[in-house]
């Protein structure tokens, strides 16, 4: 029972009730939303008869409990239903849309961390100095400008004025051939088939939206790094390290930063979840075929299957994210171990 994989497996098992809850709540909530999909899809010229026809075709004339069990039965077979607005199976839609959003969000976060963490460290080390002030200005500016605005400004400058960036029209310019889908991440798929040219094409499309999102997420990460570093640097063990004559680099990285990483990882998890849910505006500005815009469109159309599929996918994603964060904690801090209880 004490196998290494066991506690992790136990964590995953613990998430099952959460997922069941999400299935029930998303089902009930979508039904509770105002708007009748039958009326919507029957079109402007609909007669009561045609609406009833559409309703029967969608299965909406059945009792709610009945509909729920049918939904669950399909779910167990991996069938999330068919989106009435795109006409595609929801699984298919999610499989193309979700990687697009994830790729964008992950790129933005990597970029954001690469800037925010060193910035936070420097701001903490030189507290009250010019870098500290620069950090504060950059961070405040980044978070106070709405993403659609930064996005449009970036497009205006780098695409329209300078012409350095490609046209902001989705994940890949039409001159490139899309690689066969393996992971759905263009950057990975292109490398898998060795298509370097397309890889760079995809990367170029990614730059501007990633920067837009990264600017928005700089603030929490940089602030948390700075605060965590400040408290770590004033800790007793840092004084011990300094009194033992350790080099500033060792004191800063091995002693202070590793201890400061815990709150930063927590923040990173939170930022990741809100960005993934909130990057609709960026997706719209850059015509990014992501999951955010898909969900909003589905919601407007009362596209039940699509909305439920989206909510469920997000729930699974967050459960996995939390698992990854817990694992990261255990890696960083030996005091936090997985207990099977």
């Amino acid at each position: 029972m004490a196998g290494a994989g066991h506690p992790v497996l136990w964590r995953i098992v613990q998430t099952i009730p959460v997922l069941i809850g999400v299935v029930v709540v998303s089902f009930v909530l979508t039904r509770a939303l105002p708007g009748d999909p039958a009326v919507y899809f029957a079109g402007a010229m609909a007669t009561p008869e045609s609406i009833a026809e559409v309703r029967a075709a969608l299965g909406l004339d059945q009792p709610l409990v009945h509909q729920f069990f049918r939904y669950c039965a399909a779910l167990l077979q991996g069938d999330l239903g068919r989106s009435v607005s795109t006409g595609q199976p929801v699984v298919e839609d999610l499989a193309t849309r979700l990687p697009a959003s994830l790729e964008l969000t992950l790129c933005a976060l990597v970029l954001s961390c690469a800037v925010a963490i060193p910035l936070g460290i420097l701001a903490a080390v030189r507290q009250g100095g010019p870098i500290d002030h620069l950090c504060r200005i950059l961070v405040t500016a980044g978070v106070s400008l709405p993403t659609f605005f930064t996005g449009i400004v970036l497009i205006y400058v780098f695409y329209y004025l300078l012409g350095w960036a490609p046209s902001p029209l989705g994940r890949l310019d039409f001159v490139y051939l899309e690689p066969p889908r393996v992971t759905g991440f263009l950057l990975v798929d292109t490398l898998l088939v060795g298509d370097i040219e397309t890889f760079f094409g995809a990367a170029r499309q990614l730059i501007l939206p990633s920067v837009t999102l990264a600017l928005f997420t700089l603030a929490p990460i940089a602030r948390m790094t700075r605060a965590a570093m400040l408290s770590a640097l004033s800790a007793d063990y840092v004084r011990t390290a300094r009194a033992a004559g350790l080099a500033p680099r060792t004191v800063l990285l091995t002693y202070a930063l590793r201890n400061a990483l815990l709150p930063v990882v927590t923040t990173l998890g939170m930022v990741f979840s809100f960005v993934l849910g909130a990057n609709v505006l960026v997706e719209k500005v850059f015509a990014w075929p992501g999951i955010g815009s898909y969900a909003v469109e589905a919601l407007v159309a009362s596209d039940y299957a699509a909305v439920q599929g989206f909510v469920l996918a997000m729930a699974v994603l967050f459960v996995l994210l939390n698992l990854v964060i817990d694992l990261a904690y255990a890696l960083i801090d030996p005091r936090i171990g997985f207990s099977a209880k």
Binding site: A235, D236, Y237, R239, T240, A241, R242, A243, A244, G245, L246, A247, T254, Y255, R258, N259, I332, D333, P334, R335
Partner: peptide, 25 residues
């Protein structure tokens, strides 16, 4: 020069030993 002296020639023992050690190393 101070870094050579600290720990090499003059060293310190602190109060509250548990806090004086890096908790995750």
């Amino acid at each position: 020069a101070m870094r050579k002296i600290r720990g090499g020639e003059i060293s310190m023992i602190f109060q509250n030993p548990r806090a004086a050690l890096n908790p995750i190393r």
